[in-house]
Structures are given as C-alpha cells and as structure tokens.
C-alpha cells in the first residue's frame, strides 16, 4: 500500500483522472471475507492466516532470543521484554491476585503480543499492496497495476484482525480457557452452579441462564470489537492512501498504531478479567461486594 502510493508520488502523478483513460488508480476492494491464496491438504490458507503466522513468528522472535541467555543484569532486548513482562505481571497480579496472576500471565501476554503484532502489521509496507494480480488484470507500469487494474489484486498479506476467523478464534480460546480455569479452580459442581442453580428459584435459575448467554455473547463481543476497530482502521488507511497518496495514510499511522495497541490491550485485559471472575465463586463475589459496601 505504502510503496505503491509512494511510487505514484515520485512519478509526479496525482490520483486524479487522466484524460479519457479514467482514474490512475481506484479505491481498493473492501471485503470482510479473507482471500484464500491456496490450499494445503484441503485446508484453506488465507492471506490473514499467513499474516497471523507472521505475527506469531514476530512474537517468537521478540521473546525467544530475549529469554535465551538471560542475565541477572538485563541488557538489550532482554531489558525491553522484561520491562513489558514486569508491567504485565504486575497488572495480572493486581487484577487476579498473587495466586492466579502468574498463572494467567502467559495466556494474557501471548494474546496481547500476538494481537499487537497482527494489528501493527497494518502499516507495514507491502501489506495489502503486494499480491497476485487477478486473472485478466494487466500490469501497465512494469510490476505495478494502474487504472482500472489497480485494485485487481489478491494481497498476500492482510492484517489478521480484519478477518473474523482470527478474532473469533481468539475469542473462542479466551472463553474456553476461562471455562477450563473455572472448572479447575471451583470444581465442576460450583462452576456449573453458576449457570444452573435452583437456589432462590426461579430467579436464580433465570440469572444462571443469563450468565450462560453472557458467556456465549462474550465470543461475539470479543471478536467483533477487535474486528470492527481493525477493519475500520484498515479501510481508513486504504481510502486516505488512495485520496492523498503517501501522506494521506501516513497521517493516520500513529492513530492506527494507538488503536492497534489499545485493542490488543483491551482483548488481553478482558481475558484476564474474565479469567479472574471464573476462578472466583459467586459467594466470594458477594462477600467482596459486601466488603466494598
């Protein structure tokens, strides 16, 4: 995206119509569906999946070298990773307490960095601009596509959170792990009792059913919050980049970096909060609430 537009600017061209040939480039195609690039043993491989794998690799490249030969006096990348890890450990312990904070830290941190890397991929050069031309598209400017062909491309990379498969998968993981921790911490009887209870019948039962619906609704709220923010940001960058090449999108890069960070943090933080709630019984919640009053 960035390089295509930069190239256009250096050529002294503006994204305006040039004579009867029509616009020099067109608005990219926007679609919520991911682009399937190829299949491996029947498994579809989309550009968002490749981006997600890339985000995983980036996260590993941050953590593994930094934690390989750790020293008591940190330096370089270890320093940065430790600083972020300490912030997240403190945050986890503050929300979930000393007992559970450290247990939740790995999942919360993995989610945070994975989503963050995926979100920040949005501004990388080549993302959504390098790809395979669609059948019938003509490369009119060397390796570049111009005019009506400019949006006839299947990008190789697309920010993973602009695909609901990515966000829903994370939401499912978050909710499922939350339930697993609930069962482990409280035992099956108490945990199921949160949703199906005959105490204070029939109000307790109705509340339990609502709790169950809430758990399922979390998948939707989790996934569509992230998807909506990132998809909207992606569209914003593409539209602004088309209207004002290079500079138009650049102005919004800091905003998108911020949104990407906030959304990653919100996802991780909500997972942490729900995990904390899952390992807390109803009675403890009531006791805590009464203590606060």
């Amino acid at each position: 995206m960035f390089w295509t537009h930069l190239f256009s600017v250096t050529q002294g061209q503006l994204p305006l119509t040039v004579g009867a040939a029509g616009p020099l480039w067109q608005l990219p195609n926007f679609d919520v569906n991911p682009d399937i690039l190829f299949n491996i043993l029947g498994f579809p491989v989309s550009n968002t999946l490749i981006s997600a794998v890339l985000a995983s690799v980036l996260t590993m490249l941050i953590f593994i070298p930094a934690t390989r030969k750790m020293t008591i006096v940190p330096k370089g990348m270890q320093n940065l990773v430790e600083w972020v890890a300490m912030l997240l450990i403190d945050f986890c312990e503050e929300v979930a307490g000393k007992q559970w904070g450290r247990k939740f830290f790995p999942l919360v941190t993995t989610i945070f960095f994975y989503v963050l890397m995926g979100n920040w991929m949005e501004i990388l050069p080549g993302v959504e601009s390098f790809g395979t031309p669609l059948p019938g598209a003509h490369a009119t400017g060397g390796i570049f596509l111009f005019g009506v062909n400019s949006n006839q491309i299947t990008p190789w990379l697309r920010p993973p959170a602009t695909d609901v498969n990515f966000t829903i998968s994370l939401a499912i993981i978050s909710v499922v792990v939350t339930q697993i921790y609930g069962f482990r911490a409280l035992g099956a009887g108490v945990h199921i009792g949160k949703y199906i209870t005959f105490r204070e019948f029939p109000l307790g039962l109705i509340v339990g059913i609502f709790e169950m619906i809430t758990e399922l609704a979390r998948i939707i709220s989790f996934s569509f919050r992230l998807f909506g923010n990132l998809f909207a940001g992606d569209v914003l960058l593409l539209v602004m980049g088309t209207l004002v090449p290079a500079l138009g999108a650049t102005v919004f890069y800091p905003l998108e970096l911020f949104v990407g960070f906030i959304q990653a943090f919100v996802f991780a933080a909500l997972t942490l909060v729900f995990l904390s709630l899952a390992v807390t019984g109803h009675d403890e919640e009531h006791a805590t609430a009464e203590a606060h009053h």
């Binding site: 491989v45 989309s46 995983s56 953590f63 593994i64 941190t109 993995t110 993973p160 498969n165 829903i168």
Partner: peptide
C-alpha cells in the same frame, strides 16, 4: 462474514503453537 470453520481451526492451531512455544521456551 467470511467465517470458515477450517480457517477458524487453522487460526486456533496457529495460536496454540505460539502459546506452546512461548510457554515452553520463553516464559
């Protein structure tokens, strides 16, 4: 909305691999 069960599964596996690697080697 482009929801594809196979892609969902692939994304879950991808996250699972990342989580396993970090849990095994980094944390």
């Amino acid at each position: 909305l482009g929801i594809n069960p196979l892609l969902l599964l692939a994304q879950i596996i991808n996250f699972g691999i990342l989580f396993y690697v970090l849990q095994r080697f980094a944390f």
